[in-house]
């Protein structure tokens, strides 16, 4: 499915490529351009990438428990950590393989179809983008392993992790907007004038709790050298700014907090499943 959508978005990107005005980073726009009614590869991955993680992890522990293999496994002379760490690392390895293969494959097909040649910096940007994606999907893997440790049944953990995914991907922005509007109302002109900065900042801050938003923000910055800031920019900050591209280093610097945030979320999720698993009593019924 992911592969299929990748191809579809590539097709969309190629057909939409003619409309791209900025010809400096043409190769990157293969990943970021959306064709008519087909979203770009980047937004596809942000939305559907978690599915890979969830599919790999949702029954990692509880299916073994239900199948009676887990208590056979823990009776062997191995540390219990190795079971849960092994499950996470194996999943992450699979994810990395899928993501890199897909990303690089897409680029290769793109070269063949369009003849656009990537520059060195573009290649680096794509690799950073793919690495971000791996961390992001590994976060979802860790979440689903956590649910599989906590929930008895594979169906429960699958539903719970999918619910969380839907919440972050769709509802988090709604919630953030509602909370921000409640805290800093911008209903009329007067309020809008004094509150809009705070409103926007709060909205953004809440959205950034969501790994979906963190990831999207980070990769759109990486893949668009024209993005100069991820925060609110006031008019006086813009005075005298020279319009131009950011170098890769500067782009990275801009989203470094997002990367650390994502990695931290991933580690927290894995830490949760690790502790949960280590403290759990393994019995078959």
């Amino acid at each position: 499915m992911i592969g299929g959508t990748g191809i579809a978005s590539l097709y969309g990107a190629i057909s939409g490529l003619g409309d791209v005005e900025d010809s400096n980073y043409l190769f990157l726009s293969l990943y970021t351009t959306s064709g008519n009614s087909i979203p770009s590869f980047m937004s596809f991955i942000a939305l559907l990438g978690p599915i890979i993680g969830l599919a790999l992890g949702f029954d990692a522990v509880n299916s073994e428990r239900a199948g009676g293999t887990l208590n056979r496994l823990v009776a062997q002379p191995i540390y219990r950590d190795s079971i849960i760490i092994g499950k996470f690392l194996a999943g992450t390895a699979v994810i990395a393989t899928i993501i890199y293969t897909m990303g690089i494959g897409l680029g290769a097909v793109g070269i063949l179809c369009t003849g656009v040649k990537p520059s060195g910096e573009e290649v680096w940007r794509i690799l950073v983008f793919l690495t971000f994606t791996v961390v992001y999907v590994a976060f979802w893997l860790a979440i689903s392993i956590w649910f599989s440790v906590v929930c008895r049944h594979a169906a429960t953990s699958a539903l719970a992790s999918i619910a969380l995914w839907v919440f972050f991907a769709i509802f988090m922005s709604l919630v953030a907007r509602i909370v921000a509007n409640a805290a800093y109302p911008i209903g009329d002109e007067y309020h809008a004038m004094i509150n809009s900065y705070n409103n926007y900042t709060l909205n953004l801050g809440l959205n950034r709790i969501s790994p979906y938003y963190l990831y999207s923000e980070a990769v759109s910055t990486i893949m668009n050298p024209t993005v100069r800031s991820v925060n609110v920019v006031t008019m006086d900050q813009l005075v005298g700014a020279v319009s131009g591209y950011l170098s890769l280093g500067q782009s990275l610097l801009l989203v470094w907090p997002n990367l650390t945030g994502l990695a931290a979320l991933m580690l927290i999720a894995f830490g949760g499943s690790y502790i949960g698993f280590m403290r759990q009593e393994i019995r078959s019924n």
């Binding site: 199948g67 009676g68 293999t69 208590n71 056979r72 009776a75 078959s284 019924n285």
Partner: peptide
């Protein structure tokens, strides 16, 4: 060696 009740295999 431990043979659990309801032993399972992959």
């Amino acid at each position: 060696g431990y043979l659990p009740d309801n032993v399972g295999f992959y």
